[in-house]
Design a binder for these strands. Structure first.
Lengths: 230, 230
DNA sequence: AGAGAGAATTAGACGAGTCTAATGCAAAAG
DNA sequence: CTTTTGCATTAGACTCGTCTAATTCTCTCT
């Protein structure tokens, strides 16, 4: 059995591989998991012993296929749990992250299957992120990009919200911005601020660091990608 | 924060206090948790440091009020989870124990509240055990006693099934014996076997060690105790 | 009361996961 | 081509939960 800690490292490495260029540096892992670099070094050595990562000393690590399988399994658990907590237990989508972060390591495969069945095998979690189906990589939705990259006047649909901070998510939720929301870019202010107008006509202004968390796509892309059942 | 391990010790001590005479011996705790006596000793020392148990060296331990509160909280989590897994996720009541045993240490108070609400604040879990409500001790159902203690011909109702072995529970479940089942003691054989007749007329024979796990009461007591909404 | 049996505790070790401080490597700057 | 700088690793220590082996306590039996 793999410890919860090891699963956390694998999950972090998986995410970091997608965000930047593999191999993933030890210090990056350390930062992500809020541990010191020596701790990260000793953990990746253990992961290497178990053939979950490939390591080039002084360079960094990449996941082996086995490591990736574990990472995806954990991510699947996480997203399934987030969906379950929101849909079945009435949690607010902004507060499910913490709970799922812990539970993801402790549910059985049986639990996973039953939850997936109860939710009717969902493809996307409440943040709009795809739920990987076991061995398969989630289809990375390339049509989605950061809100800030679009010019004024662009008509867009929120694909997902890449944020882990519960306060910020609550703010967006209250403002009416969730996956599926349609909006138009009203103004991109040079002072690090973006204003959008929602379907109902309300406008919402957001500082760049929050706007960056909002991934959008044009409604046409949504149909083309077949991911519109959010 | 208390570790899952410490919670396990507290829960075990709580159960052992009810089953026998406090103080609870170190070796008994060790046996229950399948660790060696020195391990149990060192853990109870730590529990003492945190004022969760009172200890008399070479004698044993008793829970302090704080320790008992924690134990009850964990037991509440366990039974709530068992109920949830059976009612909402369609688990068989015989297979929920393992899953609940792990999850009980990892759910938040928020999760606990929401599950309790979703289940409509249940008073009893699928095994027929009362679900303690936070600070309050569960009402110990004194009218319930072991099936084997009743003579032939006694008309009884199953109050709870005190067993943790999944195979045995499945067997009883298949045989139609669950909390709430009405039955009549047909024969108490001197070879360590008890035969009962169920409502439908079927008879079931059980070896003593299994019959002992079945706690029963007379249907009148059930009404008097107000625990009949099983 | 004294001896022995049986249980509990102490002593010392280990793996996991973490830290700080010291050292080593490698890539950029000169 | 050598130096510097910055990240990575090694060294060594600590806590938690566990173990085995050795020791000590308590209680019962004669």
């Amino acid at each position: 059995m793999l410890s919860a800690k090891m699963e956390d490292y694998l999950k972090a490495i998986y995410r970091l591989e997608r965000e930047g260029e593999p191999p993933v540096a030890t210090s990056t892992i350390a930062e992500t998991l809020e541990v010191t670099p020596p701790t990260a070094t000793s953990m990746v050595e253990k992961l290497e012993d178990r053939d979950l990562v490939e390591r080039e000393k002084y360079k960094g690590v990449t996941l082996t296929p086995e490591g990736e399988t574990v990472a995806l399994e954990v991510i699947r658990h996480h997203r399934l749990l987030e969906t379950f907590l929101t849909e079945e237990l009435g949690y607010d989508w902004s507060e499910v992250h913490e709970e799922a972060e812990i539970l993801e390591h402790h549910i059985s495969e049986e639990f996973e299957r039953r939850v997936a069945a109860a939710l009717d095998e969902p493809a996307v979690d409440p943040h709009g992120d795809p739920i990987p189906n076991d061995e398969l990589e989630p289809i990375d939705d390339h049509s989605a990009s950061a809100l800030a990259d679009h010019g004024e006047g662009a008509r867009l649909e929120v694909a997902r919200v890449r944020d882990r901070d519960s306060e910020e998510l609550t703010y967006l939720d209250d403002a009416g911005i969730t996956p599926g929301t349609k909006l138009v870019v009203e103004e991109v202010a040079p002072i690090g601020m973006v204003t959008v107008r929602l379907d109902g006509g309300e406008t919402v202004s957001l500082p760049d660091h929050i706007a960056d968390a909002i991934q959008v796509r044009t409604p046409e892309d949504a149909v083309a990608d077949g991911v519109s059942e959010v």
